[in-house]
Lab assay of single mutants.
Amino acid sequence: TGEEYIAVGDFTAQQVGDLTFKKGEILLAIEKKPDGWWIAKDAKGNEGLVPRTYLEPYS
């Protein structure tokens, strides 16, 4: 299990392996990579890379 984050903006996948999401979606951070791209999972179970700058902790 990971930590929940809320998307603060829309993001469209730029390449294969990225995860597209919309502002307000809750994402589960699976792995926090030091380069600023995290592996996350959305509510539908889709998994991919997301930019850290689009996420804020969800409580």
Score class of each variant (00 low, 15 high):
residue 3 E to L: 11
residue 18 D to G: 14
residue 6 I to C: 07
residue 20 T to E: 07
residue 1 T to N: 13
residue 21 F to T: 02
residue 58 Y to K: 08
residue 17 G to K: 04
residue 48 G to H: 02
residue 57 P to Y: 08
residue 14 Q to A: 10
residue 19 L to H: 01
residue 24 G to R: 01
residue 41 K to G: 03
residue 53 T to G: 12
residue 46 N to W: 06
residue 21 F to N: 00
residue 26 I to D: 00
residue 53 T to M: 12
residue 51 P to M: 09
residue 4 E to P: 13
residue 42 D to H: 02
residue 31 E to F: 13
residue 30 I to V: 10
residue 53 T to Q: 14
residue 6 I to H: 03
residue 4 E to H: 14
residue 2 G to Y: 15
residue 38 W to R: 00
residue 58 Y to G: 05
residue 50 V to K: 00
residue 58 Y to W: 12
residue 16 V to G: 09
residue 2 G to W: 15
residue 49 L to H: 10
residue 37 W to D: 04
residue 3 E to H: 10
residue 17 G to F: 06
residue 23 K to P: 03
residue 54 Y to T: 04
residue 14 Q to D: 07
residue 11 F to E: 00
residue 58 Y to P: 04
residue 15 Q to H: 13
residue 14 Q to V: 12
residue 47 E to C: 14
residue 8 V to Y: 04
residue 21 F to S: 00
residue 42 D to P: 00
residue 22 K to M: 09
residue 9 G to N: 15
residue 45 G to T: 01
residue 38 W to D: 01
residue 40 A to T: 04
residue 22 K to V: 09
residue 45 G to K: 03
residue 42 D to S: 05
residue 18 D to K: 12
residue 48 G to I: 03
residue 9 G to P: 01
residue 44 K to S: 11
residue 43 A to N: 10
residue 26 I to C: 06
residue 20 T to Q: 07
residue 36 G to H: 05
residue 3 E to V: 11
residue 54 Y to N: 06
residue 51 P to I: 05
residue 19 L to N: 00
residue 19 L to R: 02
residue 53 T to E: 15
residue 19 L to P: 01
residue 14 Q to M: 12
residue 28 L to A: 06
residue 43 A to T: 12
residue 4 E to Q: 15
residue 2 G to K: 13
residue 50 V to W: 01
residue 14 Q to N: 10
residue 53 T to R: 13
residue 51 P to E: 08
residue 21 F to I: 11
residue 23 K to I: 08
residue 32 K to V: 06
residue 55 L to V: 04
residue 53 T to P: 09
residue 18 D to I: 14
residue 38 W to T: 01
residue 29 A to K: 03
residue 59 S to D: 13
residue 57 P to K: 11
residue 9 G to Q: 15
residue 7 A to V: 04
residue 30 I to S: 03
residue 40 A to V: 15
residue 11 F to N: 02
residue 13 A to P: 06
residue 39 I to A: 05
residue 51 P to V: 04
residue 10 D to I: 03
residue 52 R to Y: 15
residue 35 D to K: 03
residue 5 Y to M: 06
residue 6 I to L: 08
residue 59 S to Q: 13
residue 58 Y to N: 07
residue 55 L to D: 02
residue 48 G to Y: 03
residue 53 T to Y: 12
residue 13 A to D: 03
residue 54 Y to V: 07
residue 17 G to A: 05
residue 15 Q to M: 11
residue 27 L to Q: 00
residue 42 D to Q: 01
residue 56 E to R: 11
residue 2 G to P: 14
residue 22 K to F: 09
residue 59 S to L: 13
residue 16 V to S: 12
residue 16 V to D: 14
residue 58 Y to R: 08
residue 20 T to G: 12
residue 38 W to Y: 06
residue 38 W to F: 07
